[in-house]
Design a protein around this nucleic acid. Structure first.
Lengths: 323, 323
DNA sequence: TTGTACGCGTTATCAG
DNA sequence: CTGATAACGCGTACAA
């Protein structure tokens, strides 16, 4: 079904049908004819061809590293909420934690096309930065700090510092840290640096050889914790770069070192609701993920509708929980 | 940047550039010229305009009720894996558990357009069924049984029946069930019916007034469990329609009825990894979610490439865990 | 108020 | 092997 066929069936020109669809001048009489035909045929205009003409789709592309993450779903919730209110739609793409795929999907989005892109970022490579700078459509980065685009991020450093300094006092043994790659500037480098600063402030430091690097999974937290606890019997705090890793740490303790359960504190980042429900809540950091989604969506729609092209950097606070 | 501009800069026709891009006949000499210009300008063809001509995008749209769900992310993992191998890309849309939004996004996908749609279904209304039947592009439904499209679903009934019959023997008190709406034929009706059949087989039945209807959230499981446990002091099994609800049930017990913790068995569906890690694993049903994603993606790409239009109904098995 | 004609960026056809 | 040119489905000046 094309607009031409509808026009023929209704005995009018395709322009009239187009105007009918988009609220232009059409006589009452022709409106009726057109409406009838459209109802009967179930005709839907091709968004596709329309975009080719109008250059905007009222679609926002959101690129995420994975979807099985509570923090990410909170962000997309926030985005979806604002976009819905402002009459946009959201399309998601997942990259399975592969930065190259982020670029792949951003290009697809750009050419497909969507009106704007929100990137929930992990590692920003040179290629990313080039893309951000050269993009023809607005991009907002969530979760990482960058000069190359508007961004919304969390105060990972200070959160980690405060968490560490407040928890470290309780420790009489070794303190361990399950990190994630420092290439991830937010969850990797900033949290780790903040942690070390916080420990120092409390007159402590990580135990020798008590740092391990995990990936963003439960299994990884499980394995690294087993190794650590096997090596040292006096670890009494395990900080984890994410609550997901913390879940793996808890599993390891539960399964292989149950006798040490009471002695070891496991702390994380993210305030995972699932974890809170079934454990009663471990010490963790609550970031305003939903808020960052809301702000991100507001930002990008503003850029779209007001041609605001001055990049904005926005840092969001945090709250310590269960501490 | 358009193909015409590239053609001009390279001193060839736009047709030659198009052939260069799509592997047609171009002399070695012109190839070089074109490549140079494309590299220098960073030109990317508009997928958009290409689709207008070719009618296919090598894009598959996947509609999901929410993304903060482990089962759903396992399905999309499976889909993404196959699609990647077969040189397709995946676009996701979330509907926030609102069936109307499912239709909205399926229409967007259809007109946008994508080559095929995978719907991870919850409630199939009449409008859904009409849409499925009339769709011009292939649709695969995952998670629900339907005659109106190819579908892949799980054996919820028998899984629930076996789970119930094997667990019921241990009970000496009241048995409770936290259901979800029966409008959801799979997670709602089938599991509940299977559960009742399983209990009956074991010579038991649900306690009077011991069925409550929850939504698919932790909070909801928490509230309903509080109410149940307040009313009856001899409940010793709580079956939950999903592991997420089960997490809420565990939270309620932990927080408000810790003294009854040892006496109450909480069982669920879905084999949630997070839950398994931190609790050691509650009795639950493992469905082949990733498999259903894989099969779904294979199905739809086959339909696309072989014009197989005979609908296929595929039922997948299950495994009981931690029982 | 209406219809004609053109353009959006590609690919496919066809004559060279 | 190459280059004009028509077509894809729509929106919109412009002329009527």
């Amino acid at each position: 079904m094309t607009i031409k066929e509808i026009a023929q069936l209704a005995g009018v020109s395709s322009a009239a049908v187009s105007r009918y669809l988009n609220g232009g001048y059409v006589s009452e009489e022709k409106k009726q004819q057109i409406r009838k035909v459209i109802e009967k045929t179930g005709y839907r205009p091709s968004i596709q061809a329309r975009i080719l003409r109008t250059k905007h789709s009222r679609l926002i592309g959101v690129v995420v590293p994975k979807i099985s993450s509570e923090s990410i779903s909170r962000i997309t919730d926030g985005i979806g909420q604002v976009l819905g209110q402002r009459n946009y739609h959201m399309l998601l793409a997942t990259t399975d934690n592969q930065p190259l795929k982020e670029l792949e999907y951003m290009e697809i989005f750009q050419n497909y096309p969507v009106d704007g892109i929100i990137l929930i970022a992990t590692i920003l490579t040179k290629k990313h930065r080039k893309f951000l700078k050269e993009s023809k459509i607005p991009i907002v980065v969530i979760g990482q700090h960058t000069q190359d685009a508007s961004c919304i991020f969390h105060d990972d450093y200070r959160a980690a510092k405060e968490l560490a300094s407040r928890l470290a006092g309780k420790s009489r043994g070794k303190i361990a840290y399950l990190a994630v790659t420092r290439e991830d500037l937010a969850a990797g480098a900033s949290r780790e640096d903040g942690l070390n600063a916080g420990l120092q402030q409390a007159g402590k430091s990580l135990g020798t050889d008590c740092r391990a690097e995990a990936s963003f999974t439960i299994e990884s937290g499980f394995e690294k914790t087993c190794e650590l606890l096997k090596k040292y019997s006096d670890i009494d705090i395990i900080f984890c770069a994410t609550d997901t890793i913390a879940a793996g740490a808890l599993e390891a303790i539960l399964k292989h070192f149950p006798e040490r359960r009471e002695k070891i504190t496991v702390a994380g980042f993210g305030d995972n609701q699932f974890l809170k429900a079934v454990t009663g809540g471990i010490p963790t950091v609550h970031f305003g993920y939903k808020t960052s989604g809301i702000k991100g969506a507001e930002l990008i729609t503003d850029m779209l509708e007001q041609d605001q092209n001055i990049p904005i950097q926005m840092k969001l606070g945090y709250e310590l929980r269960n501490i």
